[in-house]
Structure formats: structure tokens, C-alpha cells
Nucleic acid binder design. Structure first.
Lengths: 201, 201
DNA sequence: CTCCTGATGTCAGATACTGACATGGAGGTA
DNA sequence: TACCTCCATGTCAGTATCTGACATCAGGAG
């Protein structure tokens, strides 16, 4: 009982339906929203995607990981953003700008729905939140590395990366929560400004 | 085969050996160091503590949690520290001072050994690190609440708490890693200073 | 003495995850 | 065509984590 009833003709008939990973991700999100995260088993997800449990675990290290396919790409965008920041930019500004740019992709309608649903899941289940936090830690480590390539020395790079992630977390949260009074970039800039004034006090 | 061979006389004979929780924590740390985290099962831990697997899960929500008994106390100390900070202190200074004071307790010899061993475990296993991160997030939330009680308004409180945790993370890491060139408090102050200068740049 | 409380044990089960091996179209090569 | 290798997926058995339900039984309260 495949959900994505795809039609084939004999010639293009592949051995398996394409995009197993994508199907698993889609099935997972749908079931998580319908039945909740705990109530849906990996077997449920695999079945809905027309696959077996074993195959799920070939694509994802564990049940939570199916919700984090975008994290690798985000990390890459952040690193690129830091590396391509203007020469004179301070470490903190470089990181914040990178987050601001990377986050802009989330603002179209189709993504927005997914982002909100995903955010609700993360907030609801500590299990998932843990994974989110370690992804952010990985992001912070990558940002640190990118800053060091720019010549920022060790304690400052680490601090700037951590501070940047904090700004991102708060900016993102407020953007998702509030009724689109401001754009994502504005929230990031507001949080960054608040941090700067606070640290100078 | 109880490890802590306690002697009883008939009069003080209690139905069970005391401090089941403590015995479980001790057994867990010992086994984690000997066999590694993954190689030791909850059943192993319980057996070494003279208890059953089921009892382990009555004291700890899951296998990782046995390593985090101190987190609740730490959180309390941080909150107390923030609440008892001098009236004029800036939010960030209040948080940093609270961490500095709370961390001082780790500096005696007996704790130090445990702290280092535990740190090695956290660094080695992503599974445990995830738990560590969510504890720090909880700490950050508690600190935010404490700051708001001091009249700090919402965006600043959150930011100060997050920044404070970042300072703590980095200060702690350097203190644990480096060969006691500086005291814990000095590491915290150094990280705090670095953050301030960085945010002002 | 009796009853109740509470820490622990026992047992069965669900679910997450892993290793080993089997299967069978696709696509290449002779 | 015949054959062969590749590799995504399936099958199966097993282990470890975690949970619910119920049993046990010393100690304390009355």
C-alpha cells in the first residue's frame, strides 16, 4: 500500500521506487504528526515508505536522525558564509551574517510548514531535542574551524561560534513563534544587537 | 558478590543495603572505565551494585542518566548564585560569577578524578554528550528564569544565560584539559573577558 | 498483633538497533 | 545471447534498552 502511488511503464520500470531516503523522511514526518513521535515505530515508517525496518537503519543511524537530513547542508552553508564574509568583519559579525544568510532559505511557504511542524516536534520531545542540540554543537565546531581559517585565534573563535549559535537559537525561536511581525534576518540582527549591548554593559 | 562488602550485626540489619542509588552510580562509573560505556550493560551495573536491572530503571530514566546525578545540584547552585549576585551586577557578570562559584566545588582532589573520568566519557560518546548538552540547556533555562526575577527583560536574560553557559563550557573544558596552570575561576574569568572584548569589536 | 507502606524482585513484552547472509534486477562484457 | 558483477533491498536471528503488572516481605504505625 504505497502512499506515493507512482505509475510505471515497462521500459522505465526500475527495480525499486526511487528516492528511498526521501520516502522514509516524508513517511516519518507524516506519521509523527498523525500519531506522535513515540507512538510511531520505525517499522511503521518503513512500511509506509514501502520498505523494511532494516532498510530504514541503513539510511539513518537511529529513529531521530530521520528528522535531521538538512543539518549537513546547513552546516555547509554556514561554513561557506563565514569563509566568504568581508575581510574586515569581526568574528561575531561573520558568524551572525552566515546564519542570517543560511536561514533565509527557510522563509518560503513550503519550507515554513515543515519547519514549524519540525519545531513543534523538537520542543515536545526531549529525545529529539538532544539530537538538535548536538547538531548545533557540531555546527558550532564547524564555525569555529571556519573562523580559525580566517585567522581568528583559539579562544575567540570558539566563543564567537558559541555566541553565534546562541543568537541563531534565539532568533530562530522568536521567528518561528511570533506571527511574522519581522523577517528571519531581522530577528537575527535583533538578537545580535542585544548580545552586543549586553556584553558591553 | 557485593563489592562494598558491608558488615552487619543482627540489630542494625536492614532489609536492604543502604544507598542503592549511590551504589549504582559507583558501579556504573567503575564499569564504564573498565569495559567502556557501550560494552557494559545495565544488567552488569545492577549486578555489581547487588540489584536488578529493573531497580536501576527505577532510579534512572535511562542508562545515561546514571552519569548526571550532580546536574540538579549544580543547577540549584547556579540559580542561587544568580539570585544572590550584587544588585548592580550586569546580567552576564551575575551568571558568570554564579558559574565561577559553583565550579569551585569541583576543585578538590577527590572530585577531580571523577570529573576527569566523566569528561573523558562525555567526549568519547556522542550518546552521552547529547545528554550533557540538554542538561546545559536546562541550566540555561533556569539561569534565564533567575535573571528575569532580577528584573532582566526577556531577550537579554536568554542571551545572558546562553552566553554564560558558553563561557562555562569553554572555561571548564580548558580547565579540565590543561595541566593546572590556572584555577577554574581564572579560566572562567578569561573566557568571560574574551567574550566581552569580542562582542565589543 | 495486624495492617500498610515502600523498596525491591520477577516476568513478560515492546521497540530500537546490529550482523550475517540471501535475492535478483541492472548494466557491463565476451 | 550468455554470463557476471554490483548493490539496494530483504530476511532472519539476536541483543540491549526500557516499561507495565504483579509479587514479596521487613519495618513501622496503630
Amino acid at each position: 500500500m504505497s502512499v506515493t502511488a507512482i505509475m510505471y511503464d515497462a521500459k522505465s520500470m526500475a527495480r525499486w521506487e526511487p528516492d528511498a531516503r526521501g520516502r522514509l523522511e516524508k513517511a516519518a514526518m507524516e506519521l509523527f504528526q498523525q500519531r506522535g513521535y513515540v507512538a510511531t515505530t520505525v517499522e511503521d515508517i518503513a512500511a509506509r515508505a514501502g520498505l523494511t525496518e532494516r532498510t530504514f537503519f541503513r539510511y539513518f543511524a537511529d529513529k531521530r536522525e530521520v528528522l535531521f537530513s538538512g543539518s549537513k547542508e546547513l552546516e555547509k552553508n554556514i561554513v561557506d558564509g563565514i569563509e566568504s564574509a568581508p575581510k574586515g568583519a569581526s568574528p561575531l559579525d561573520a558568524v551572525a551574517a552566515a546564519f542570517e544568510a543560511a536561514g533565509a532559505e527557510l522563509e518560503d511557504r513550503r519550507e515554513l510548514h515543515f519547519v514549524r511542524a519540525r519545531y513543534a516536534l523538537v520542543m515536545k520531545h526531549a529525545e529529539i531535542q538532544e539530537r538538535e542540540l548536538i547538531k548545533l554543537a557540531s555546527l558550532s565546531a564547524a564555525a569555529t574551524k571556519a573562523l580559525r581559517k580566517r585567522g581568528v585565534s583559539e579562544p575567540a573563535a570558539r566563543l564567537a561560534a558559541e555566541a553565534g549559535v546562541a543568537v541563531f537559537k534565539i532568533g530562530f525561536e522568536r521567528w518561528v513563534t511570533e506571527r511574522k511581525s519581522k523577517t528571519f534576518a531581522q530577528h537575527i540582527r535583533a538578537a545580535l544587537h542585544a548580545l552586543k549591548t549586553m556584553a558591553s554593559a
